[in-house]
Amino acid sequence: MEQVKIIIVGFGTVGRGLAEVIKRKKDHVKEELGLDIRLVGVADLRGAMVDADGLDIDDALEWKCEIRDIDSLQLIREGEYDLMVETTPSNVETGEPAFTHIKEALMRGKHVVTSNKGPLALYYRELTDLAARSGCSLKFEATVGGAMPIINLIRNNLAGNRILSIKGIFNGTCNYILTRMTEEGLPYSYVLSEAQSLGIAEADPSYDVDGIDTAEKLTILANAVLGMDVAYNSVAVEGIRRITPDALRLALDKGYVIKLIGEAREGKIEVAPRLIPKDHPFALMRGTLNIAEIEADLAGPITVMGRGAGAIEAASAIFSDIISIYR
């Protein structure tokens, strides 16, 4: 039985979702895969909980374990673990604190699994080079499309294919707003407030509605599976703020809906609202679902869809990444 000691840095929605998943799936993974996954440390702004034999997850979720006065960097540098899960908030300008967390863990020969887009969208090559030099895995399926498999799908199941292009809907908030505007003929500002009160949009919605989130995901895909070497700030980005109910109606009259689309292929990487024929699979994505169409040289077009966000959904992608490192 192989033991896998995990620490979670950033114990919010996704971090806690992962703890929940580990609790639920621990026995199954032991029996089926011979992996003994243990949560040995958790760090947050509040402090850290540590137990080399494995924390009691129910207690950890309620912060009932002994709370040590050490910060996340100390845990990463001095803790005894095999793999760090990085789930602190994403920062698109500096990539911090995750960028430092990930480097510190990789330099110590620890595997890293993260849902944090910022550091990968900004420093993809630097981080993957560091991982390669350290002989560690750096996995980040959860950064793109939540539970929807795309990076591992391409790397594993489409191995040998050259990926010609990827396009899709990668932001549930924008998709929800555009769907409501189209179906109810409501103005952007009204639907945005509605989405905010439902918790679908943030108080400061710019990260989603200005296309930044989609651009980050696209940058990660371009680097990770399209063989491109691009930085986040080279993506041409247009969000959905200017979309009017009139525009949606004009489009509908001609048989189209408008969706915020991220598209990457050699020589082009762009986020923009696009006209989608009403019977196209992208047009059928209502609400917060994500979808992507991959064009591969041997396999042709492949379409995947799934839930793009949510604690358990993101944790699902992280959990699969963890298992894949040891399988």
Binding site: K167, E238, R242, A247, A251, Y256, I258, I261, A272, P273, R274, L275, I276, P277, H280, F282
Partner: peptide, 11 residues
């Protein structure tokens, strides 16, 4: 672009 108009193209 010159006129500050947003153009939405087909997919």
């Amino acid at each position: 672009k010159k006129k500050g108009l947003l153009m939405i193209k087909p997919l």
